[in-house]
Design a protein around this nucleic acid. Structure first.
Length: 363
DNA sequence: TATTCGTGGGA
DNA sequence: TTCCCAAGAAT
């Protein structure tokens, strides 16, 4: 017998489905993406919600669907506009992958979001979770949508002690959900599990006394709900020393640079900056050398006016920020522009460089 | 499989 | 303050 079948053996599936779904019908939060089942809007919401809290997503979602209400409108939008709408939300590849996938849907599927696992999961940025979420919520197809909530909730309910940080564990939960998902209402079943994880079966101090499926919960029965799920820790981010400059010409325009189209903060704009090694020399000298090699400009660097720390998931930037001026001309290009201070708001910056601009205005 | 991809909020 | 995280996917 498979592990998943063994785990679900003796579990009252039908009663659990009923208790979960009726609770969700009764208690679900009113959220912008729950106003209808438009597959495009379900899709957008699911991409935004990846690794991101509901309260953070709400204003972004509302603005995004206002700017880009349909598959066609997003397919035809300029990427810079899409990134600007995503500015501050993080994981910016989500935005570019979403637009690439929407173009695919526009061109290959006549603008209609496909409704099979095979077709949906081929779209850029759409993995196993999002495939199941779109299929179940928008089309009522009984596919598992296993996210962090589902793994936490089900590890408690079924007393599963596998490490949910391991990729293999997600597959176990997918097998389990396939065995217990409601065929009548897969949308509310999947959403109910996630809603339960977000509002009741929380990571710390779950509200078991308010739980609609408490009588199904093996962890509660054994009093071990606080010990589940098992989740191994991630390694701490590594620090990087950076130097950046707000560089102005005689007209008061500021030099900005577009990041490469791959990797960290891809295709976002930034102030000229470079990683420095303080054991070699001063950050100011290394910044000046960088401006010469990369921009062929002989800049004059003035005083450092800020130090900015920015924490990512896997690294920490410590940025020394200088004020500078250029006397000679710099040729502009697609990735290099001289912009007046007021025009900067039209470009998408990572939060770290938004903070550089804030400090510059306050200096 | 483990690492790379952001950000802001909460314990 | 420090840590962990929150509706994951790509590589």
């Amino acid at each position: 017998m498979k592990q998943s079948e063994n785990i679900v053996n003796d579990f009252n599936i039908e009663q659990f489905q009923h208790d979960l779904i009726t609770w969700f019908e009764r208690e679900q939060r009113i959220l912008p993406w729950r106003q209808d089942q438009d597959p495009y809007k379900v899709w957008v919401s699911e991409i935004m919600l990846q690794q991101t809290r509901v309260d953070t997503v709400i204003p972004y979602f509302n603005r995004f669907v206002e700017h880009f209400p349909t598959v066609e409108s997003l397919a035809h939008a300029e990427e810079d506009k899409v990134l600007k709408a995503w500015e501050g939300l993080g994981y910016y590849s989500r935005a570019r992958n979403l637009q690439a996938a929407v173009k695919e849907v526009h061109e290959q599927y006549g603008g209609k979001v496909p409704n099979t696992p095979e077709e949906i999961s081929k779209l850029k940025g759409v993995g196993p979770y999002t495939t199941g979420a779109i299929l179940s919520i928008a089309y009522g197809v009984p596919e598992p949508a296993v996210d962090g909530n589902v793994m936490r909730v089900m590890s408690r309910i079924l007393s599963i002690w596998d490490d949910i940080a391991k990729p293999k564990t997600r597959k176990l939960f997918e097998e389990i959900i396939r065995l217990i998902i409601s065929k009548d209402n897969p949308s509310y079943f999947n959403q109910g599990l996630m809603e339960l994880g977000a509002t009741v079966c929380t990571p710390t101090s779950p509200s078991c006394l308010l739980c609609p499926v408490r009588e199904h919960c093996r962890a509660f029965e054994q009093g071990v709900q606080a010990e589940l799920p098992i989740k191994s820790k991630k390694k701490p981010p590594k620090p990087k020393q950076m130097a950046a400059v707000v560089l102005t010409n005689e007209k008061g325009e500021v030099l900005i640079h577009k990041r490469p189209n791959k990797g960290l903060l891809a295709n976002l704009w930034e102030f000229p900056n470079v990683e420095v090694d303080l054991s070699i020399g001063s950050d100011k000298d290394q910044l000046k050398a960088f401006l010469w090699t990369d921009y062929r400009t002989n800049a004059t660097l003035h005083q450092q006016f800020a130090t900015i720390q920015h924490v990512f998931s896997h690294l920490v930037w410590n940025i020394a920020v200088y004020e500078g001026s250029i006397a000679d001309d710099i040729s502009e290009s697609d990735t290099r522009k001289l912009v007046s201070i007021d025009e900067l708001e039209n470009y998408a910056f990572p939060v770290s460089h938004q903070n550089i601009l804030k400090e510059y205005r306050l200096r």
